[in-house]
Amino acid sequence: MRIAAHGFEVDVPRGWDGEIYRRPGGLKPLGGPAEHTGAVVHLGNFPLPNSRGDYGSGAVEVMGPDGIFLSLFEFGPGSVGKALFRAEGLPTVTPEDFAPHTMQRPLPGQSGAQYFFSMRGRPFCLYVALGTHARRRQLVPEINQVLGSVSLSDT
């Protein structure tokens, strides 16, 4: 089923949870412009808890051994053009990219991978967490299939 918001469109596979949201802004400075808050896309092949962080804290803890969690996180305009985001377009994930220490908070058996890139001039981080590091070769094709359905428009 395809969901769309904030310029993103993604095909969420059957049985997966997905959410597209914009991070709440802070207080608007007096006389200044409203704070720009980026869009965030969360996808998981397990029920995503309501309370979770932008990088999946609260969700990865309840992920099963075959669990996959994806976070596509947009950075603010201050990051546009920075060297970190020089790569263009969504990356293709490979099993070699995953390492247990790449988790935001290392959890036994799990592993993660992180990519920085730009799409349509917008800076992003893709963070992927796996329920079992040893199952990364089986899980990576599924991840790339989902990522292949993601599109971003200018809106």
Binding site: I3, G15, W16, D17, G18, E19, I20, Y21, N45, P47
Partner: peptide
């Protein structure tokens, strides 16, 4: 809250 969501009901273990 205004988010767009997809809830997996089938094809899950629960």
């Amino acid at each position: 809250a205004g988010s767009t969501v997809h809830i997996g009901v089938t094809g899950t273990d629960s």
